[in-house]
Amino acid sequence: MTFARLLASAAVATALVAGPAVAKDWETVRIGTEGAYPPFNTLTSDGQLEGFDIDIAKALCEKMEVTCEFVTQDWEGIIPALEAGKYDAIIASMSITEERKQRVDFTEKYYNTPPALVVPKGSDITEATADALSGKTIGAQASTTHAEYAEKLFPDADVKLYPTAEEYKLDLENGRLDGAVDDVIVIDEWVKADGTCCEILDTLPMDAAIYGEGIGIAIRQDDDDLREMFNKAIAAIREDGTYKTINDKYFEFDVYGD
Protein backbone atom coordinates (compact mmCIF):
# COMPACT_ATOMS: atom_id res chain seq x y z
CA MET A 1 0.00 0.00 0.00
CA THR A 2 1.40 3.43 -0.95
CA PHE A 3 1.96 6.19 1.60
CA ALA A 4 -0.83 8.27 0.01
CA ARG A 5 -3.31 5.41 0.31
CA LEU A 6 -2.28 4.87 3.95
CA LEU A 7 -3.05 8.54 4.66
CA ALA A 8 -6.41 8.29 2.93
CA SER A 9 -7.33 5.16 4.89
CA ALA A 10 -6.33 6.83 8.13
CA ALA A 11 -8.50 9.86 7.33
CA VAL A 12 -11.55 7.67 6.67
CA ALA A 13 -10.99 5.74 9.89
CA THR A 14 -10.73 8.97 11.88
CA ALA A 15 -13.95 10.31 10.37
CA LEU A 16 -15.79 7.09 11.24
CA VAL A 17 -14.61 7.24 14.84
CA ALA A 18 -15.42 10.94 15.15
CA GLY A 19 -18.95 10.46 13.85
CA PRO A 20 -21.27 13.29 12.74
CA ALA A 21 -20.61 16.95 13.62
CA VAL A 22 -22.10 18.09 16.92
CA ALA A 23 -23.80 21.40 17.73
CA LYS A 24 -21.56 24.28 18.75
CA ASP A 25 -20.89 24.93 22.41
CA TRP A 26 -22.09 28.51 22.80
CA GLU A 27 -20.17 29.59 25.88
CA THR A 28 -19.26 32.87 24.16
CA VAL A 29 -21.40 34.69 21.59
CA ARG A 30 -19.85 37.47 19.53
CA ILE A 31 -22.38 40.15 18.64
CA GLY A 32 -21.98 42.55 15.74
CA THR A 33 -23.50 46.03 15.98
CA GLU A 34 -23.03 49.37 14.25
CA GLY A 35 -22.43 51.74 17.15
CA ALA A 36 -23.74 54.72 15.15
CA TYR A 37 -27.53 54.56 15.53
CA PRO A 38 -28.65 56.24 18.77
CA PRO A 39 -30.62 55.56 20.88
CA PHE A 40 -30.44 51.92 19.77
CA ASN A 41 -26.67 51.48 19.52
CA THR A 42 -23.96 54.10 19.82
CA LEU A 43 -20.39 54.59 20.99
CA THR A 44 -19.71 56.92 23.94
CA SER A 45 -16.81 59.37 23.94
CA ASP A 46 -14.66 56.78 25.72
CA GLY A 47 -15.46 54.04 23.18
CA GLN A 48 -18.12 52.14 25.13
CA LEU A 49 -21.23 50.74 23.43
CA GLU A 50 -24.60 51.73 24.83
CA GLY A 51 -28.25 51.88 23.79
CA PHE A 52 -31.41 49.81 23.62
CA ASP A 53 -29.91 47.16 21.30
CA ILE A 54 -26.91 46.79 23.61
CA ASP A 55 -28.95 46.45 26.79
CA ILE A 56 -31.26 43.92 25.12
CA ALA A 57 -28.26 41.93 23.89
CA LYS A 58 -26.74 41.83 27.38
CA ALA A 59 -30.06 40.72 28.90
CA LEU A 60 -30.44 37.95 26.30
CA CYS A 61 -26.91 36.71 26.87
CA GLU A 62 -27.56 36.62 30.62
CA LYS A 63 -30.69 34.51 30.07
CA MET A 64 -28.74 32.18 27.76
CA GLU A 65 -25.92 31.99 30.33
CA VAL A 66 -23.28 32.90 27.76
CA THR A 67 -20.57 35.54 27.65
CA CYS A 68 -21.22 38.45 25.27
CA GLU A 69 -18.46 39.99 23.19
CA PHE A 70 -19.39 43.02 21.07
CA VAL A 71 -17.83 43.87 17.71
CA THR A 72 -18.51 47.19 15.93
CA GLN A 73 -18.95 47.08 12.18
CA ASP A 74 -19.94 49.60 9.50
CA TRP A 75 -23.55 49.01 8.44
CA GLU A 76 -22.92 48.25 4.77
CA GLY A 77 -20.58 45.39 5.65
CA ILE A 78 -22.50 44.05 8.60
CA ILE A 79 -24.05 40.98 6.90
CA PRO A 80 -20.90 40.00 4.96
CA ALA A 81 -18.92 40.14 8.22
CA LEU A 82 -21.45 37.79 9.87
CA GLU A 83 -21.16 35.38 6.94
CA ALA A 84 -17.37 35.55 7.20
CA GLY A 85 -17.44 34.58 10.89
CA LYS A 86 -16.35 37.91 12.35
CA TYR A 87 -19.19 37.51 14.88
CA ASP A 88 -22.08 35.12 15.53
CA ALA A 89 -25.14 37.39 15.56
CA ILE A 90 -26.19 40.89 14.52
CA ILE A 91 -28.09 42.97 17.08
CA ALA A 92 -28.24 46.33 15.35
CA SER A 93 -31.88 47.29 14.68
CA MET A 94 -32.02 45.16 11.53
CA SER A 95 -35.43 44.64 9.90
CA ILE A 96 -36.48 41.07 9.12
CA THR A 97 -36.96 41.19 5.35
CA GLU A 98 -37.34 38.56 2.64
CA GLU A 99 -34.29 39.89 0.80
CA ARG A 100 -32.07 39.50 3.87
CA LYS A 101 -33.51 36.04 4.55
CA GLN A 102 -31.80 34.89 1.36
CA ARG A 103 -28.48 35.30 3.17
CA VAL A 104 -29.17 35.02 6.92
CA ASP A 105 -31.72 33.63 9.34
CA PHE A 106 -33.56 35.73 11.91
CA THR A 107 -34.95 35.31 15.38
CA GLU A 108 -38.42 36.48 16.31
CA LYS A 109 -38.67 40.29 16.47
CA TYR A 110 -37.51 42.17 19.55
CA TYR A 111 -39.07 45.51 18.57
CA ASN A 112 -41.07 47.15 15.79
CA THR A 113 -41.43 50.94 15.34
CA PRO A 114 -42.58 52.97 12.32
CA PRO A 115 -40.54 55.26 10.06
CA ALA A 116 -41.01 59.03 10.00
CA LEU A 117 -40.19 62.04 7.86
CA VAL A 118 -38.11 64.80 9.47
CA VAL A 119 -37.84 68.28 7.95
CA PRO A 120 -36.16 71.55 8.94
CA LYS A 121 -38.22 73.82 11.17
CA GLY A 122 -40.12 76.32 9.02
CA SER A 123 -40.04 74.03 5.99
CA ASP A 124 -42.53 74.66 3.20
CA ILE A 125 -43.20 70.89 3.14
CA THR A 126 -46.50 70.47 4.98
CA GLU A 127 -47.39 66.85 4.30
CA ALA A 128 -45.55 63.56 3.77
CA THR A 129 -46.86 62.75 0.31
CA ALA A 130 -45.27 61.98 -3.03
CA ASP A 131 -46.60 65.24 -4.49
CA ALA A 132 -45.29 67.33 -1.61
CA LEU A 133 -41.83 65.75 -1.87
CA SER A 134 -41.59 65.90 -5.67
CA GLY A 135 -38.32 67.59 -6.65
CA LYS A 136 -37.09 67.69 -3.05
CA THR A 137 -33.87 66.11 -1.78
CA ILE A 138 -34.43 63.49 0.90
CA GLY A 139 -31.72 61.81 2.95
CA ALA A 140 -31.56 58.26 4.32
CA GLN A 141 -28.93 55.80 5.49
CA ALA A 142 -27.67 53.56 2.67
CA SER A 143 -28.49 49.83 2.60
CA THR A 144 -31.42 50.25 4.98
CA THR A 145 -35.13 49.58 4.70
CA HIS A 146 -35.66 53.31 5.27
CA ALA A 147 -33.67 54.13 2.13
CA GLU A 148 -35.68 51.61 0.10
CA TYR A 149 -38.92 53.00 1.51
CA ALA A 150 -38.00 56.63 0.77
CA GLU A 151 -37.28 55.72 -2.86
CA LYS A 152 -40.61 53.89 -3.15
CA LEU A 153 -42.80 56.39 -1.27
CA PHE A 154 -41.31 59.51 -2.86
CA PRO A 155 -40.47 58.42 -6.45
CA ASP A 156 -40.04 61.96 -7.76
CA ALA A 157 -37.73 63.08 -4.97
CA ASP A 158 -33.94 62.92 -5.12
CA VAL A 159 -33.08 60.37 -2.42
CA LYS A 160 -29.51 60.90 -1.25
CA LEU A 161 -27.90 58.01 0.64
CA TYR A 162 -25.37 58.25 3.46
CA PRO A 163 -23.08 55.69 5.15
CA THR A 164 -24.44 56.61 8.63
CA ALA A 165 -27.44 58.38 10.12
CA GLU A 166 -25.14 61.01 11.61
CA GLU A 167 -24.11 62.15 8.13
CA TYR A 168 -27.62 62.79 6.83
CA LYS A 169 -28.39 64.65 10.08
CA LEU A 170 -25.41 66.94 9.47
CA ASP A 171 -26.56 67.72 5.92
CA LEU A 172 -30.10 68.38 7.14
CA GLU A 173 -28.78 70.75 9.79
CA ASN A 174 -26.70 72.58 7.20
CA GLY A 175 -29.54 73.05 4.71
CA ARG A 176 -28.32 70.54 2.13
CA LEU A 177 -31.44 68.35 2.48
CA ASP A 178 -35.17 69.07 2.46
CA GLY A 179 -35.94 66.12 4.71
CA ALA A 180 -34.93 62.62 5.78
CA VAL A 181 -36.54 59.27 6.48
CA ASP A 182 -35.58 57.07 9.43
CA ASP A 183 -37.04 55.26 12.43
CA VAL A 184 -39.35 57.56 14.39
CA ILE A 185 -37.49 56.84 17.63
CA VAL A 186 -34.11 57.72 16.13
CA ILE A 187 -35.46 60.98 14.71
CA ASP A 188 -37.39 61.89 17.87
CA GLU A 189 -34.31 61.38 20.04
CA TRP A 190 -32.25 63.56 17.75
CA VAL A 191 -34.68 66.47 17.34
CA LYS A 192 -35.28 66.62 21.09
CA ALA A 193 -31.55 66.69 21.80
CA ASP A 194 -30.83 69.27 19.08
CA GLY A 195 -33.82 71.49 19.79
CA THR A 196 -33.26 73.99 16.97
CA CYS A 197 -32.79 72.29 13.60
CA CYS A 198 -35.66 70.08 12.71
CA GLU A 199 -39.00 68.53 13.52
CA ILE A 200 -40.93 65.38 12.72
CA LEU A 201 -43.45 66.18 10.01
CA ASP A 202 -45.27 62.85 10.27
CA THR A 203 -44.87 59.15 10.91
CA LEU A 204 -45.19 57.04 7.77
CA PRO A 205 -47.35 53.94 7.22
CA MET A 206 -45.48 50.67 7.59
CA ASP A 207 -44.96 48.84 4.29
CA ALA A 208 -44.71 45.14 5.17
CA ALA A 209 -43.14 44.34 1.80
CA ILE A 210 -40.17 46.52 2.79
CA TYR A 211 -40.10 46.47 6.58
CA GLY A 212 -40.99 42.81 6.98
CA GLU A 213 -41.85 41.40 10.39
CA GLY A 214 -40.08 43.87 12.67
CA ILE A 215 -36.57 44.09 14.04
CA GLY A 216 -34.79 40.80 14.70
CA ILE A 217 -31.42 39.25 15.42
CA ALA A 218 -29.58 37.98 12.33
CA ILE A 219 -27.86 34.57 12.58
CA ARG A 220 -25.89 32.53 10.04
CA GLN A 221 -28.16 30.06 8.27
CA ASP A 222 -26.54 26.97 9.78
CA ASP A 223 -26.72 28.18 13.40
CA ASP A 224 -30.24 26.96 14.18
CA ASP A 225 -29.37 26.19 17.80
CA LEU A 226 -28.22 29.75 18.45
CA ARG A 227 -31.36 31.18 16.85
CA GLU A 228 -33.55 29.07 19.12
CA MET A 229 -31.50 30.08 22.18
CA PHE A 230 -32.14 33.73 21.32
CA ASN A 231 -35.86 33.09 20.69
CA LYS A 232 -36.30 31.48 24.11
CA ALA A 233 -34.39 34.33 25.73
CA ILE A 234 -36.53 36.99 23.99
CA ALA A 235 -39.68 35.29 25.28
CA ALA A 236 -38.16 35.02 28.76
CA ILE A 237 -37.24 38.72 29.10
CA ARG A 238 -40.68 39.70 27.83
CA GLU A 239 -42.25 37.42 30.41
CA ASP A 240 -40.21 38.35 33.49
CA GLY A 241 -40.28 42.15 33.08
CA THR A 242 -36.66 42.61 32.01
CA TYR A 243 -37.73 43.86 28.58
CA LYS A 244 -40.08 46.44 30.11
CA THR A 245 -37.33 47.73 32.40
CA ILE A 246 -35.00 48.25 29.43
CA ASN A 247 -37.81 49.67 27.29
CA ASP A 248 -38.78 52.22 29.95
CA LYS A 249 -35.16 53.34 30.32
CA TYR A 250 -35.25 54.66 26.74
CA PHE A 251 -38.85 55.12 25.64
CA GLU A 252 -42.24 56.29 26.89
CA PHE A 253 -44.18 53.51 25.15
CA ASP A 254 -43.73 49.80 24.39
CA VAL A 255 -41.60 49.56 21.23
CA TYR A 256 -42.27 45.83 20.88
CA GLY A 257 -45.35 46.60 18.78
CA ASP A 258 -48.31 44.38 17.94
Rank of each mutant, 00 (worst) to 15 (best):
L117F: 02
V119W: 03
K152A: 14
T129W: 11
T145D: 06
L133F: 14
I125H: 13
S134H: 07
A140S: 15
A150Q: 05
T129M: 10
K136H: 09
A140F: 09
P120F: 00
K121N: 01
D124A: 11
L133S: 07
L133E: 04
E148T: 15
A147Q: 07
A132F: 00
K152Q: 13
K121H: 01
G139R: 04
A150H: 10
V118Y: 04
A142R: 14
G135D: 13
S134P: 05
T137D: 08
A128N: 07
V118N: 01
D131E: 15
S134M: 00
K121W: 01
T137K: 13
P120M: 02
A116Q: 04
T129H: 11
A150M: 10
Y149M: 11
S123K: 06
A147P: 00
H146A: 15
K136Q: 08
E148F: 10
G135S: 11
A130Y: 08
I138R: 02
K136D: 07
E127G: 10
T137A: 13
A116H: 07
H146I: 00
L117G: 00
D124W: 06
G122Y: 06
D124Q: 12
T145M: 09
A140V: 08
G122M: 06
G139H: 05
I138G: 02
V119Y: 07
G135H: 12
S134E: 10
T145L: 04
H146W: 13
L117R: 03
S143C: 09
A140M: 10
S143Q: 14
S143R: 12
E151G: 01
G135Q: 14
A116M: 06
P120Q: 07
A140P: 03
Q141A: 12
Q141S: 11
H146E: 15
T144D: 07
D124S: 15
E148C: 03
L117H: 02
D131Q: 15
D131V: 03
A147N: 01
G139F: 08
E151S: 10
K136R: 15
L133K: 04
S123R: 05
V118S: 05
E148N: 09
G135V: 14
T126E: 09
H146F: 14
G135C: 12
H146T: 13
A128M: 06
A132E: 04
V119K: 03
K136N: 08
I125A: 13
A140T: 06
A130C: 05
P120L: 05
A147V: 02
A150K: 08
T145E: 10
K136V: 04
A130P: 11
E151P: 00
D131N: 12
V119L: 10
E151C: 02
A147T: 04
I138F: 04
E151A: 13
T129L: 10
A132V: 00
A116L: 08
I138K: 04
T144F: 11
I138C: 06
P120S: 07
K136E: 06
E148K: 15
A116I: 00
Y149V: 03
I138P: 01
G122D: 08
A132I: 01
D131Y: 08
E151Q: 15
G135P: 12
V118I: 09
A147C: 06
A130M: 09
